Simulated scan of single mutants.
Amino acid sequence: MTVQSLEKKIAVLASETDKAHAAMRELQSRYETVPPEDAEIIIALGGDGFMLHTLRDYVGSEKAIYGLNRGTIGFLMNEYRPDALGKRLAEAQTVKLHPLRMRTVTQNGDTIEAIAINEVSLFRETRQAARIDIRIDGVVRLHNLVCDGVMVATPAGSTAYNLSAHGPILPFGSGVLALTPISPFRPRRWRGALLPQNAKIEFEVIENRKRPVSAVADDTEVRDVVSVSIQQDRETGVKILFDPEHNLEERILKEQFTA
């Protein structure tokens, strides 16, 4: 089989599954590839988890990420088809995602930072419910939220865990973030809030040793946090490519009408 050259330099990355590695071998046998550091486009083979990992790795770079689904749901992925890859890349639509930056302070006084494409979540670590104060732009907006947890989700992440926790789906480009409680006990009627994308969100964990809480930025977990601050980084982003018929805006809109 003749190896085809493409208009733009591509690198192929795969998750650890056999299906993803088989797809990587197939693409590398058909198309000319380069190491990731030399590529203009990264082809990510796997599921949404691997796609999020790849997006975080290339935040702030000029490389575009084109996902091909070799996982399960693949909300952030395109359909895997090995044919006509050059044409698909040439016609793909570009969306720039801006990450959430999480800064935590732990019980030991350590400061740990991480970024998230989908959401930052706080979770209780023991049988006792968490107690959390919520401050928005320096103002306490909710005192003593008693809950299993709470999260901040981007539009790209609003159809993931946020939706399962009964949070709102956010259209891409809406300019807002979703603040969503997880199994709130008090106040009973509070179901979350929509916040401007430039808001600074701070969580203070009450009785943090008696009721320990962990903070998770996508899949990066920090245990035993005392405080967590979150803000979207509008100065940094990562480019993701979608086939025109399955672009991100259409997927998010369609999700709102799915039974």
Rank of each mutant, 00 (worst) to 15 (best):
A22G: 00
G74N: 09
R70D: 05
S29N: 15
T106Q: 06
S29M: 07
R56M: 06
E16V: 13
V34W: 06
P35M: 09
N78D: 10
Q28F: 01
Y80E: 13
P82T: 08
M24H: 04
L85F: 07
F50G: 14
V95C: 05
T17H: 11
E62A: 13
R56D: 10
G71F: 15
M77W: 08
T94Y: 00
L45Y: 11
I73K: 12
G47K: 09
E62K: 12
D18Q: 14
V34G: 08
G109W: 04
Y31H: 04
R56G: 04
Y31C: 02
P82D: 10
A20C: 09
P82R: 12
D18Y: 06
P36T: 03
H53E: 14
T72Q: 15
I41F: 00
L89H: 04
R70N: 14
L27F: 08
D83Q: 15
P82E: 14
T17P: 06
M77D: 02
P36Y: 07
L68N: 03
G46Q: 04
A44Q: 03
N108C: 03
M51W: 09
E113L: 07
P36K: 03
H98I: 08
Q28I: 05
A84E: 14
V95G: 01
Y31Q: 02
S29A: 15
A39S: 13
E62W: 05
E37Q: 15
T111A: 10
G71H: 12
G46K: 06
E26M: 13
G86K: 06
M51C: 10
I42L: 13
E16Y: 09
N78M: 03
L55W: 05
T54R: 05
M51N: 12
K19P: 01
T111W: 00
H21L: 11
G109I: 07
V34S: 03
N108F: 02
T72I: 09
M51R: 07
D18A: 15
A84H: 13
A39P: 02
P82K: 12
H53M: 11
N108W: 04
N78L: 08
A44H: 03
E62Q: 14
I43M: 02
L45W: 09
G109T: 08
Q93F: 00
R30N: 09
L89T: 01
L89V: 01
P99F: 09
L68Q: 15
V105K: 14
T54D: 08
F75C: 10
E16G: 12
G49E: 06
A64R: 11
G49T: 04
I73W: 03
K19T: 15
R103N: 08
Y66I: 01
I112Y: 08
